[in-house]
Computed example of a mutant assay.
Amino acid sequence: MMVTTSPLPTKRLQSPMSEIKVLVVEDYQPLAETLEYQLQRAGYEVHRAADGREALEQASLLLPDVVFLDVDLPVLSGVEVCKQLRANTKTRGTLILMLSALGEESDQVVGFAVGADDYVVKPVESYKVLLQRLKALLRRREPIVDDHDSVTHKGVTVDRRRFVVTFQNEPLKLTRSEFRLLDTLIRQPGRAFGRGELVDAALGEDTMVLERTIDVHVRALRKKMGAAADLIETVRGVGYRFQE
């Protein structure tokens, strides 16, 4: 086994909350107003949209850092909006927090499958907790502090500083969560990671989702890795590992 690394320490970048733009996409006005109030009170710049089409227009114009996205929207559903945001190069990296009254595991799986970064079940019982989840999302997009900036194993290279993944020198387009998931696995080839560990690594320790949700991210990651998909091995009863 050979794992190569190149040292390059980085520092976390911090931005005042007032510089962070949040787009709230919610057609139920009382909830939209409450979210707007709570976010503004916490210091965020807040914009609102009431249907799916308006959400896409606002997102393309404003380029928000975060989108609070209701699933059950008029004109275009939140699922379709999420798909289109991920397909647009200008909004592909936008953090998306889905809001839905549908709380079954299958509903959450659909949300994460189309590219959501977090999933919150309505009604929102604690706005304090919701704001903490938002902070966790924002921390996830910050540069990772580590002595080894890049790692290469089995032809796959993960470069943290440039946020780039390649397989046999061909770039792979991954979401932020997929990138963190692969980065965690490849740095310890052969080690079996539990689903809970991978949820913390890919989605953040403050994210409250079902552990099986990580299976959706692994399936999406394998699909994008193509011929390298088999390098991520399933460990029955445990989770996953990167081939040693």
Rank of each mutant, 00 (worst) to 15 (best):
T166K: 15
L8V: 11
T152G: 05
P143Y: 12
Y28K: 00
L130W: 11
V124Q: 07
V209L: 03
V145E: 13
T10Q: 14
G52D: 13
A228S: 07
K223F: 11
Q14W: 08
T91C: 04
N169E: 14
D215N: 08
L8I: 12
E26T: 07
E80Y: 00
V165H: 01
F193T: 02
V120F: 03
F193A: 06
L174F: 09
L56T: 10
R53Y: 03
K83H: 14
E19F: 04
V145H: 00
V46F: 08
L203F: 04
S6K: 14
Y127S: 11
Q84A: 04
L13C: 02
M98V: 11
L99V: 04
E125N: 14
R162A: 09
V110Y: 05
P143D: 10
R176G: 11
Q168G: 05
T207P: 02
S100L: 08
V158C: 02
V156I: 09
L181Q: 00
T94L: 06
E205F: 06
R219H: 05
T175L: 14
D118T: 09
V124I: 15
D200C: 10
V158D: 05
V235F: 01
L131A: 08
G204T: 01
L102I: 02
Q58R: 14
A32V: 10
F179E: 05
V218L: 03
Q14F: 09
L95D: 05
V71D: 06
L97V: 07
L134T: 06
E170P: 02
L185T: 10
M98I: 10
H217C: 00
F68C: 07
P74S: 03
N88H: 09
L99K: 00
R191L: 11
R139D: 12
L174I: 13
F68A: 08
R53E: 14
R53T: 12
D65Y: 00
A116V: 08
S15N: 03
I232N: 00
S18K: 10
D51C: 12
V75D: 15
T207N: 12
Q132E: 15
E205R: 13
K135E: 15
I232H: 00
F163T: 05
